[in-house]
Amino acid sequence: MILVLDVGNTNIEFGLFHNQKGDFTILSSARYFTKINITSDELGFFALRFLEVNGFTRKDINRLVYSSVVPQLNNKIESLFTTYFSGTIVKVSSDIHLGIKNKYKNPAEVGSDRLVNASLVYHEYKKNAVIVDMGTATTVCGLNADGDYLGGVIIPGVLTASQALFDKAAKLPAVSISYKDKVLSDNTIGAIESGIYFSNFYALQGIMKKLIAELQFDNCLKIATGGYSSIFQKDGLFDIVDDGLSIKGLKHISDINS
């Protein structure tokens, strides 16, 4: 079986897959809060518990595939696997086979999470696409029907921007981030919730429209993943919302590098 880890700035997502090529069925997934001072043993104990609650053991795992935007954790991730498991390790970077062409000016600068998403989207759809990943930062990336990763936009994530507001404005309370159907609100909490929702909605709508025009994409597929993407689907902002896109992308990377 294959263990995949998507190491982000806020969470580390664990995913479990069968070894069969082309099978992107997520057997189970779980998130662990990202901490720079975490130890490989702490990660190892979490991984073993994750397997145990799903009816598996360390002996069932023979491959680790991971992408990371937190370089300080890379050695700990690999130490976790070599200490508690046996098998091969695949680290996603611009140097391995991704099934797409990285057209970034400096290919090594692209976050591995963005490449993972683009790789699976091209494999699955073979269409012009705009890919939105709503994490600590929100990324909006362009991918053409020929499999060229063309770059994109990085903006503060929904929670990141909201937390800055709460931190800087002492009288404003922290609120939940949720779907809103009206802009106008007659109370402070509602006004903040509306502001968070619609500022992100129209930012994404405008950026995607501008990006599609610049790239001269026809019949463009708008795909979103990440923790808050489903909130914006209610207004039809995206064609597809797939919260498991990144870990399924890691499984695809495993398939084409084995």
Rank of each mutant, 00 (worst) to 15 (best):
N102A: 09
V175H: 07
I240K: 09
L5A: 03
K103W: 15
K35P: 03
N128E: 13
L245K: 02
I212V: 08
N117C: 14
E52W: 10
Q163T: 12
C220P: 08
I207P: 03
N106L: 14
G190F: 13
F17E: 06
I212N: 02
D23G: 13
G55D: 08
G244V: 08
G157I: 03
R31N: 14
K76E: 05
T225G: 00
I231R: 02
G147T: 04
D243Q: 08
G195L: 03
K127H: 12
G227T: 00
I223M: 03
A203I: 04
F217C: 11
D60E: 07
R49T: 10
K234E: 10
I61E: 01
S28G: 13
I155V: 15
A169C: 08
K222R: 14
N144F: 08
N75H: 09
I212L: 05
Q233M: 11
L172M: 08
R58K: 07
V121P: 00
D23H: 12
I61H: 06
T34W: 05
A174P: 12
E52V: 12
F238K: 03
H18M: 14
D95V: 04
G152C: 10
F166E: 13
G147R: 13
L211Q: 10
G55F: 05
G157R: 00
R31E: 10
S254H: 05
K103Q: 15
K248M: 07
Y104G: 06
K248A: 01
V183S: 14
V183Y: 15
N128W: 08
K21L: 11
Y104V: 04
S185Y: 09
L184I: 14
N19S: 11
K168Y: 14
K210T: 15
G135L: 04
Y202K: 07
T83Y: 05
N74E: 08
I177K: 14
I196A: 07
Q20G: 09
P71Q: 04
K103A: 15
L73D: 00
E124I: 11
L48I: 10
P71Y: 01
L64A: 06
N106G: 11
I177A: 07
Q205R: 12
N37K: 15
P71M: 06
S40E: 11
G157Q: 02
G151K: 11
G152D: 09
Q233I: 04
V116P: 01
I253M: 09
V158C: 02
L150I: 11
G152M: 04
L80G: 00
R63W: 07
V183C: 13
A203L: 01
K126L: 12
V132T: 06
